[in-house]
Amino acid sequence: MESFIATGLIGISLGTQYTLLALGFTLIFGILGVVNFAHGGFYVMGGYVAYYCNVILGLPYPVAVLMAMLSMAALGWLFEAFILERVIEDHQATLMVTMGFYLVMATAILMIFGAESPQFPFPVTGVWRLGGIYFPYANMIVLGACLAAIVFVYWLVYRTNIGRGMRAMSEDLPVASALGMRTKALFPFAFALATGLAGGTGALVTPILALAPHVGDSVLAFSFLTVILGGLGSVTGATCAAFIVGLIEAYAAVYLGGSKGALTLFALVLIILVVRPQGLLGREVRRS
């Protein structure tokens, strides 16, 4: 029983991390119609910015996380406004441009920081225990921060004019534009929000796992999987799917073995997509 509860905690932790990543990924697809293959790159770079600020410059960790979010949001804004915007109508070009940008980011990190993992410890150590159940304080803090960020994104998307504008563009771009929604402002904003979230997640998660130039690869894979499962463009779908993915991954890995965890996850996703190709909460036809 203790093992079952401990596994549930692992699954929820994974789920919140995947939610933050998937929210950004699905926002970009829902609003811009772009599959952002550079998403993992923003996650890693966020981790490195936080590392640089915290370990090299000696800034407090919360400030480092904030710097990571802001710098990745700024980079995302610039990337969208000056590069992606030029090819936004061409889906193949957007794939190539985002993939290329990821390679540029990964190589830049490799050149600046090297291929080896730096020491980037989480400032809080210690573990909460209850019998055989344990939960590191660092994971608790990250869980809390991720939940707060998820609430913020929901508030922004569903309770503010900017959010309404973004959702309107996601629903029907030509009509939203005709009604005065400014794509030149909202597209970069949506992209910056997503990349800021990715950077913040990287800053929060890499100290409790590991920071290395390659860790964005698996982040991209799981974000993509989560968003496909939830339904491309669906914010609520991505949130539900992230927790499903996190819990399946944890329970399958614990009860079937590490190798079979990923296999089970992909098999289940495959079955769900065969039964419901548009994903759990996705629309059948994307209109914008």
Partner: peptide
């Protein structure tokens, strides 16, 4: 490619 080993650690 696994980055979080918590489930394996639980096993």
């Amino acid at each position: 490619g696994t980055t979080n080993f918590a489930p394996i650690v639980t096993r």
